Simulated scan of single mutants.
Amino acid sequence: MINCIFSGNFKLYIEGLIKEKQALGFLYEHSQTLLAAFERFCIEHYSEETELTRDMCMRWAERRPSECNATLSNRIIPVRQLGKYMQRIGIQAFVIPDGLTGRRNKYVPHFFTREELYLFFRAADRLRYTPNSPARHLVVPVMFRLLYTCGLRPIEARQLMVSDVDLETGTLYIRESKGHTDRVIVVSDDMRALCRIYRKKTVSIFSESEYFFPNHKGMIYSPYLLDKTFKQCWNSAGIPPDNVPHLVYMT
C-alpha cells in the first residue's frame, strides 16, 4: 500500500520501488515518507531534471546541522535503493555510494527506573484534549502502556486494527511481526480492563475507524508523530535528556 502521494518526475520509479519492496514482504512505510521528502527536494531544486544525477543525490546526502550518523544514514538509504531500482529496470541513475556516513555510533539503550516510569506515564496521562486531535489524550497513555507491558514494537502497536484486539479474552493478534510472521499476545487483566475503558471512549469519537489507536484523522499513527509525542511526554516528565529513546528507529 502506497501511503504518500507522489507527483514529481520520479513518481513512477518511486512507486515501482515501493511496490517491489512490499511484494518482498517489507512494509516500507517509513521509507515512503523519506522518499516523499526527497521528491519535494527534487521539485524545489531540480524541477526540470528527469535523471537521478550525482549532483542531486550527493546534495541530498549532505549532513544537516546537528544531524547524527543514524539519521543521515536512514535518510540516504531509500534514495540509494531508488537508484539501484532504476538501474535494474534499465534506467540510467546515480547510486549513492556506501560508507558516506562513516561508522554508526553504537546506540546505548535507556533502562527506566521506577521513578522515571512513574513520571513518564503521569506525563502521558496529563496530555490535554485538543480539537485538532480529539483522541490523542486517550490514545497515547494506553498505547505507551501497551508497548511497555507487552514488549510490542511501535509499528505493531500503530498497526493494530480494532478486529485484532479481543477485549473479552485479552488477546492481541499481531500481523506481520518481525520476520514477517503473525503472533498472538495475551495482555494482563489490568491492561485488558484499561483497554476496555479506552475503547468505550474512543469509539464515540472515531466510530468508523478500523484502527485501535487512531490518529487525528482516524487513520494509522505515523512513526514521526508517535516519536514526537513520546519526546513530549519525556520532556514533560522532567527526565534527563541523555539517551532519550527514538521510537521512530524501533519501527
Score class of each variant (00 low, 15 high):
E44P: 05
S47W: 14
T50N: 14
M56F: 05
F41W: 08
I43Y: 02
A36Y: 11
Q32E: 15
H45M: 08
R59Y: 09
T50Q: 13
E51I: 15
L35P: 00
A36P: 05
M58Y: 05
C57Y: 03
L24F: 02
D55Q: 08
R40D: 06
G25S: 06
T50Y: 14
E44T: 14
F26E: 03
Y46M: 11
D55H: 06
C57D: 02
H30Y: 15
F41D: 00
C42P: 05
A36C: 10
F41E: 02
I43A: 11
H30T: 14
Q32I: 00
R59D: 12
T50P: 07
E49V: 10
C42K: 06
G25H: 10
M58P: 02
T53Y: 10
R59V: 02
T53K: 05
I43K: 05
F38C: 11
T33K: 07
Y28L: 05
A23I: 06
D55A: 12
G25R: 10
M58G: 03
I43G: 00
L35G: 01
Y46L: 08
T50I: 15
E51T: 15
F26C: 01
F41T: 04
S47R: 13
L35V: 01
E44L: 09
E48K: 15
T50K: 14
R54V: 03
E29M: 11
L35S: 02
Y28G: 08
E51Y: 13
T53R: 07
G25D: 06
F38V: 04
I43W: 01
F26V: 02
E51D: 15
M56Q: 04
L52M: 13
H30Q: 13
F38M: 07
A36F: 12
F41P: 08
G25P: 10
A37Y: 09
C42H: 08
Q32Y: 00
R54P: 00
E29I: 13
A36S: 14
A36M: 06
R40F: 07
H30D: 14
Y46Q: 10
A36G: 09
C42D: 02
L52Q: 12
